[in-house]
Each structure stands twice: as C-alpha cells, then as structure tokens.
Write a protein that binds this DNA or RNA. Sequence first.
DNA 1: CGATAACATGTTATCGATAACATAATACCA
DNA 2: TGGTATTATGTTATCGATAACATGTTATCG
Lengths: 344, 344
Amino acid sequence: MTLPIQKKRVTIKDVAQAAGVSTQTVSRVMNKFSYVSEDTRQRVEEVVERLGYHPSTLARSLIQQRSYTLGVVTFGLKYIGPSRTLNGVADQADALGYMMVMKELDNFDSSRIDDVIDSLLARQVDGILWAAPEIGSNHAWLDERLESIPVPVLFLAMQPRKGVSSVATDNYQGAVMAMQHLLTTGKKRIGHIAGPLSWWEAQERKRGWRETLEKAGLDASEQFCTEGNWSSASGEQAFHQLLEAYPYMDSIFVANDQMALSVLREAHRLGIRMPEQLAVVGFDNLPESAHFYPSLTTISQDLQLLGEEAVQRIVEMIQARQNNQIIPAQSWFIQPNLVVRESA
Amino acid sequence: MTLPIQKKRVTIKDVAQAAGVSTQTVSRVMNKFSYVSEDTRQRVEEVVERLGYHPSTLARSLIQQRSYTLGVVTFGLKYIGPSRTLNGVADQADALGYMMVMKELDNFDSSRIDDVIDSLLARQVDGILWAAPEIGSNHAWLDERLESIPVPVLFLAMQPRKGVSSVATDNYQGAVMAMQHLLTTGKKRIGHIAGPLSWWEAQERKRGWRETLEKAGLDASEQFCTEGNWSSASGEQAFHQLLEAYPYMDSIFVANDQMALSVLREAHRLGIRMPEQLAVVGFDNLPESAHFYPSLTTISQDLQLLGEEAVQRIVEMIQARQNNQIIPAQSWFIQPNLVVRESA
DNA sequence: CGATAACATGTTATCGATAACATAATACCA
DNA sequence: TGGTATTATGTTATCGATAACATGTTATCG
C-alpha cells in the first residue's frame, strides 16, 4: 500500500541545468522575447520537450503581481440560467487566456460574502465577476465593502448603480417587447405571472408589463398579476389564481418559460384555444419552448453572450488598471429578442 | 481619465512592521500553531484587522508545494446534467476548503486536451476532476497521458477502467430498475429510445433494456430501439420512428427525461392513454417531470451527490499522496432510484 | 580602426509566504 | 544552583519564476 511515487515536478532549474544555460535564458526562450541565439533556443526547446517542462504560473503570478485568473462568484448553478451564463464566462475567459476560480454561494449571510471575497483575493485574482442574481437586499454589502477591494469587480444581472460596473439583460425592454407584441395582435386584457418579486429581474419584467399597459391606456391593476417562483409547479398554481382573478383575460405575459410552459399545459388541458382565446408569451427561450403545442412565443435572452460580454468588460478594466488608468464605472445592457411562435 | 489608484495589497511585511515583530511571528499568529504569547498575538491580530491583511495563498502554495485547488474539466455546462454535477463539486470543494479552477472543453481534439491539462498543472492544482462525459473515444488520450500527470486524476461518468479512478452513476442498474418496474406492471412489449450511442451512458442504459428483456425471455430486437440525441426534439422524432417500427408496443423506456417528456406530449396528442395503452419510464428525474400529465415515472440520478462524492474521493487521494502513500485506482458507482409516478 | 549599436547570456534581487534552524528568556527539578 | 524543558521570538534559506542590471561578444559605420 505504501508505494514510492511522486514524479517530481520539473522546474526551470532542471531545464537550465540539462541544457547548460542559466534559468534566465530558459525564461527567455519560454517567453519568446529578448535575444536568444537560434542555437541555444533549439537546445533549450529540445530539453523542455524531453523533460516535459511547464512553467509554474504560480511562481510567475507571484513575481508579476498578475495571475491571469478571474474570480467568479455564482449562485444557483443547478438552474439553467446561471449555468448558461457561466458557460459564456468560461468560453470567453478561455479565449482571452484567463483561468476561472469559482465560488458558489449557497445563501446570503454577509459574513460568508466577506469570506468569499477574501478567499478570491488571497488567490490573487485579477478581477471578480459577481454572477449571483440580485435578490432582496443581497447586494447591500457592496456599499461598504466594494471600495476596499483592490481589483476590478463587475456585477452581472444587477440593477444599475452609480459607481458600480455591471452587465445585465434589459429585462424591462424585453417585457415591453413581449407586451407590444400582444398589443399588436389585438389583445387588450393582459395578465401577468411574475417571478419572485424579491428578484430584481422579476421586478423589471413586471414593470415592463405594467408600464406598457398604462401607456396604452389599459388596465394594469395589481390583481391581474400573480407571483410564482420560476418553477413549473408554481407556474401552474399562479395560472389558476390568475384565471380566477381575471376570468376575461385574453392573454398572459409570463416572467419565464418554465412557468409559461406550465400555463400552456394547463390551458391545453382545460380546452382553452391558444392563441385565440388565450395568447401566452414567455421569457428565456428554453430549448423545449420550441417543441410544445402550441410552441411558445417568448423573449430570448442570450445568457451565453451576457457571460462573454462580462468577461470582455472586466478584462478591459483589468488592463486599464495595469496602465494605471481607470475606466469609469458603467452599466451595460444586453438587448433581448422577441421570438414569435404559435402561442401568441 | 488617468487617475491614481491601486491600494497596494497588504503583505505580511506590512503587518510585521506595524506590529513591531518579525514576519515569522505574524505567520505563527495566522496559522495558530507554535508558541506565541497572548500579548503578541493580540497585538498582531489587531494590526491584521486594522490593515485588512489576508495572506497570499499564492505565496503559500509556492513554498508548501500544495495549492488546495482542484482542477475541474467540464463539458456542456449549458445542459442541466453537467451543471448539476458541477454544483455538487462546488459545494463539496468548498466544504473541504478547496478552490476550483475550471476549464471547459468545447470539443475533443486531443491537442486541446493536452493544453488543458498543462494549464491546470501550471496552476499547481492538487488534483484533477475530469467531469466531461465519455463520448466515442474521447477518453483515449488517457492511455498515454495519464501516467505522466503528477497529481491524482479522477474521472466522472466514465466507463470503469483498470488502473483509473472514476465515479459514475450506475446507468446499467438504473435501466434494469426501470425495466423491472415495467415488467412488474405486466408490460411485455417494451421499446427503447436511446440516447446518442456514442455516449457511454447511453450505451449502458440500452444494455440494461436489452439484457433485462432477454433474461425475461422477451423480445429485444434491434428494431425496437431508436436513437435520439437527448433533446426534446429528437425524442419526438425517435418516438414516431419507434411507433412505426413497433406498433404493438405496450411501453417505452426512454433514456432521459427530456426525450420522455416529448413522448408524453406526443402520446397525449395522439390520444394514447397512459399508462394503460402505453407506459413510459424516463431517466434523470427533472423537476418538470413531476408536473406533467401524466407525471413521469423515472429513474432519479443524483448528480449533485455524484459531484460531492467525486470531490470526497479525490481529496482522499490527494491526502494519501501527501503521506507518500497511494490509494489503488478504483471505480465507484452511485446507485440511482426508481421514482414511480403516473406514467408507468 | 576605434566607437557605438545590436545581440547573447549570466548574476543578483525580488515576489510573499513558510521551513528549518538559532537564540533568548523563563520555568522547573533534582 | 546548574541543567534541562518549555516558551517566545528572530534569522536565514527556500519555493519557481522574472525584473533589473551587468557583462561579453559580434556587427556596423563613419
């Protein structure tokens, strides 16, 4: 059971010795700059290959004060949305030569948040991507903590704030597009199934529903909106509540597809014809949404792109800081699209 | 635009100086061992607090030759399965004090695989979790590369191999459970919609279907099985093909829930009564599956747990190696469960 | 042909922490 | 009271790489 193992890691010294040069020369060969004779270069490269040498990023980061690593804080990876965002982040980080160090939040007591930030900073991350959704006042910590963080921080899917950089889908605009589509098709009594209203994104979508109706001079009473928690099950329940509160409703804007699909299913079961009797528009554009009966008209938000953009932005911020400049804090929005299908 | 910034990072030297002690003493206070007088300890802790000092894990890793970091290689994060696994990995890594460095594969040309491994090793990860599914011969590289990797490697959802450690759901057993349930309810003409058969997991599930039928003396002809690609759309198509090939079929075992839900939908549309005329069993236990009409009987595989177990195992391997021992390579299986609902 | 630039390589200091060793002060015991 | 343990702290070497500086060699040119 006790066997000898551990092939020692090959270091720059081993290479230098084997090639009969100084470590500095090896470093020069690895980094392809400054002068190295063709002769030496080949000799070194050959040794590197033979010994299987790979420079320790760790040591390099230490001396260069730069790690090419992004700290990524996520929440709810088991849901499709966050994991698609993460996918975009991973792709783009890779493309730009950055590694990701991940921390997943389970809940939001703020002592934990301090720990998370500290552990990322201890890893010398060059920047932090905060990819946990804004729920209730779970972003309150940033008021007092943010300015003590010595690296750029970028928030995803957060309500824009002065002095803080963020990237988010334009949920309000998406909702407006959904509503305008319904209005265009002649619908006038439009109900809403909201997401959990502690979520900023749910609030924005609801605001889009309300304001569009109001601008059109239509009724946006509070009782025409019920609240779910994004899940299928809650969607079904919220639909029944809404049917009761608003029997003459001719269409619904549902805050996400998962709930919207439940609505389609229930409506179908109740023999309601769609879109004639009831038009339905969702939000998210899940893969399944295209394959339902009727297929779901929805707002497509490109979370992959959101993740990619976020990395792009933060890398710019990092580079600016390298040059001792600073990019003024800014909020970016990603525009969603309307995907018209059969349900509306 | 060009503003001065960059609060210098606080180092151990700053603390030592401010507290009037040596760096070594600060280190002793931070690591809570060896002798430090109560007096000094308090003084140092106070300075640490005041300056907001956090030790650089980077420097520590360098000297200790240990990074408390796991390399995690993933694939297909945009799908629910991989991201749930990752969720489990993240949770458990956190619980055990490890950080994760992630790399996502986009495809499988093996030069890229070498790069991925090299970049993880350059980060001095203590171990590697290979959480990309086995498809075709995409794991072939490990024959020649694995033994040159100086840290433990653990594979997830891989076919067991001699000399390689892995953790996987017992897909075969899950399939057998599904089939036995169908047999118990009196079904005898059982079709199968497989996942893409280049995937090992899809193969295993199909094998469970075939062998269970054969053992029961029933017909498991090749034409009673069609192949999808895990997606809703492909499930629908595969179902139609199967209906044609096996019109007298009284039940179906579908290799995942996403396809199974399409089957439910289509069958419902065609007016087929379930489970009397056609019983359906899926695999995965998606949240939606409980809320369909009929609700879907399925095999629940706990991917969260899979991820957690994997971290547990690799940390054991890492610790063993620290003590210069080696844990013999081993394959672990996670047992899935049958969840009986209305569809079968 | 001597001076200057371009090329090639080596030496030493450094990043931030800990390991290993050294030293000093106090306590305890025969 | 001298000797050994225990407690408390400092000094120096080290991890693996690169920065900064130094030095030597070969071209190039007026």
